[in-house]
Design a binder for these strands. Structure first.
Length: 594
DNA sequence: GCCGTTTTCGGCCCGACTGTTTTCAGTCG
């Protein structure tokens, strides 16, 4: 059983307990256990099987250890089942409705036995909810709107959609000119998570807060086109929903609070909770305004994040690391990684041209990559098994190799490598003959079919591909498509161990729909010394800039420059890439002037 | 249900906003 499945059962139990009116700490324990498992790189099933003490995990005591064992053993949990006899499972959907929380959901259930979004929406439409204490006409309207949104979308967005929206909003707000200070995204966008729920923007006022300026700023922000609904409008916060369904929160703050606010609203929630607990132990209290002494609430740091971390005895923690997965301990010990940066990237090792399913030619891709200051790229068309993408067979691949090498001679300032994104067939064999594989400069392999194999067969399939002596890089290893398709299930640990053994690199695919490997897997790879490549999988020149999303995912995975093959200069990169059978030593590389 | 530099009992992050309740509970992030 996967960690996230155990976590889901625990989280649902927590929600049901909360609706059931359990004491705050009890359901919090279940919530915390679920968070822990979601972020654990070890499989809890393995830990339990190897007789490891689950109680050594923070927040897991005798009770929860026993519950987790029950879940692993039976696939379900008796308390959850018991609660689900009392409440229908759909009641959990109601918690997703804005303005409804556990208390109100419990009231609605008690009075009407309504437990689906549709039922509650009908009660609201019929004006029956206003008789419940704590509800009124406004609440009914809010519930109706929330029910609409619930139907429309799961409410999460890809990082580049959020990025674009944030840029447009920042540009709009910056038209206020000198009336404001900085406008900057916080929240999960600043942490560079792969999907974003709400957009958090922090607006620093240019001078002391006054009613008139706040009013003027608010009016201007709310004139942003494509606002669908205003959710809140206070002196500190404006919330609205865009037509895309994305919710935006803009916080207005004074410059002296900027560091504390940035920290607070960047999160993650788990990181903040841990920081506040640390602050408490050190005699401080931390909120969105300042770090202050517990004794007399005297502020000691608030303007920059760096000074607040410093007062807490911590090095500055990059936003991508703020998930409470060991970064605070590392910051205290001074052992934080020096994360890879966009500027470290020297090449891009996966892209397509018009020969398969790309939009641009070899030359166009090369020139666009040169603009991004890449030193080298690999052109990697699909192989013949991917018929929908016009994959290349052996003959066309050989011709493509010739064309790439020809273009390489013509184009100055960038090395062009002849690659292929070779399909891993159902049985683990590669989709091109060895003679052709031998002639490629870069062999990237990946799965595009039979994605629902059982975990054992899928693991065997990928291991077979790794053991193939021509394989150099496994592309988008888990096959997930964000918000659309779950990852394949296989034994990542075995795969990574094999990759290490055979010097096969694992890709961090930078395409915003993929971002695969993810942060947790990248960290597992790093711990084993497996090399990483960060590539865009571009299908047009425009996609080449997606490399930044791959870099931020790598940063979330604690990856440093030395872990990444395509952060190496050209010649070193070619030397470090897995050597193929019969490969001649690299002929004296022609010096390419940049 | 967990946990301890105040603690083996009693608290569990904390402040802003909304709507309705005329003094505050519930929700949200």
């Amino acid at each position: 059983m996967e960690n996230r499945e155990v976590a889901r059962i625990l989280r649902e139990t927590a929600q049901l307990l909360e609706i059931d009116g359990a004491p705050i700490g009890r359901f919090r324990s279940y919530e915390k256990a679920a968070e822990l498992l979601d972020n654990l790189s070890d499989r809890v099933e393995e830990l339990a099987r190897n007789g490891e003490k689950l109680t050594e995990l923070p927040g897991i005591g005798e009770g929860l250890a026993e519950h987790i064992r029950e879940i692993l053993g039976t696939g379900d949990y008796s308390l959850r089942r018991k609660l689900l006899k009392k409440y229908p499972e759909t009641i959990l959907d109601l918690l997703d409705l804005q303005s409804l929380g556990p208390k109100k959901v419990a009231l609605i259930w008690k009075k009407f036995h309504a437990a689906t979004v549709e039922d509650v929406a009908r009660l609201a439409r019929e004006g029956k909810l206003r008789d419940v204490p704590g509800f009124g006409e406004k609440s009914e309207q809010n519930i109706l709107r929330a029910a609409e949104t619930f139907k429309k979308a799961a409410g999460r967005f890809l990082i580049h959609d959020a990025d674009e929206t944030a840029q447009a909003l920042v540009a709009h707000i910056e038209k206020l000119g000198k009336k404001i200070g900085a406008v900057e995204p916080a929240g999960s966008l600043r942490r560079r998570k792969e999907t974003i729920g709400d957009l958090d923007l922090l607006l620093t006022l240019a001078s002391r807060r006054s009613k008139e300026t706040v009013e003027e700023i608010t009016e201007h922000i709310l004139a942003f086109p494509s606002i669908e609904q205003i959710l809140a409008r206070g002196e500190n916060k404006i919330s609205f929903r865009l037509e895309s369904g994305m919710q935006v929160d803009v916080r207005l703050l004074e410059a002296k609070h900027r560091g504390a606010a940035l920290m607070y609203f960047t999160g993650s929630k788990e990181h903040n909770v841990a920081l506040r607990s640390r602050a408490n132990k050190m005699g401080y209290t931390l909120n969105e305004y300042a770090l202050a002494t517990l004794e007399d609430e005297k502020p000691v740091a608030s303007t920059t994040e760096t000074e607040i971390y410093k007062k807490l005895g911590l090095a500055f923690i990059e936003p991508e690391l703020r998930e409470n997965t060991g970064e605070i301990e590392a910051a205290a010990k001074g052992t934080l990684p020096k994360l890879i940066e966009l500027g470290d990237i020297r090449g891009d090792l996966q892209m397509h041209t018009v020969a398969s399913d790309g939009k641009n030619t070899i030359e166009e891709m090369a020139l666009a990559a040169k603009q991004l200051e890449h030193e080298y790229i690999a052109i990697t068309e699909h192989s013949k098994a991917v018929t929908v993408a016009n994959g290349l067979d052996e003959k066309r691949t050989l011709e493509q190799i010739r064309l790439i090498h020809e273009a390489d001679k013509k184009i100055e300032g960038i090395h062009l490598l002849a690659g292929s994104e070779v399909d891993i067939l159902k049985n683990g064999k590669l989709d091109l003959d060895d003679e052709v594989l031998a002639q490629l400069d870069v062999v990237v392999v990946s799965i595009h079919s039979f994605m629902n194999l059982d975990p054992v067969a899928m693991t065997e399939r990928i291991l077979a591909a790794i053991e193939n002596p021509y394989t150099q890089i496994i592309a988008h290893p888990t096959g997930r498509l964000l918000l659309r398709r779950e990852a394949f299930t296989f034994d990542m640990e075995k795969v990574l161990d094999a990759a290490k053994k055979h010097n096969v690199a694992m890709e961090c695919n930078a395409y915003p729909d993929r971002l695969d490997l993810n942060d947790v897997h990248l960290r597992m790879a790093k711990e084993r010394g497996v090399k990483i490549t960060i590539s865009t999988d571009s299908h047009s020149t425009k996609n080449l800039s997606y490399i930044k999303y791959g870099v931020s995912m790598a940063r979330r995975g604690w990856i440093e420059r030395s872990d990444v093959l395509n952060a190496l200069p050209y010649e070193q990169f070619r030397k470090k890439l897995r050597a193929k059978p019969g490969a001649k030593p690299l002929r004296h590389p022609r010096r390419k002037s940049a």
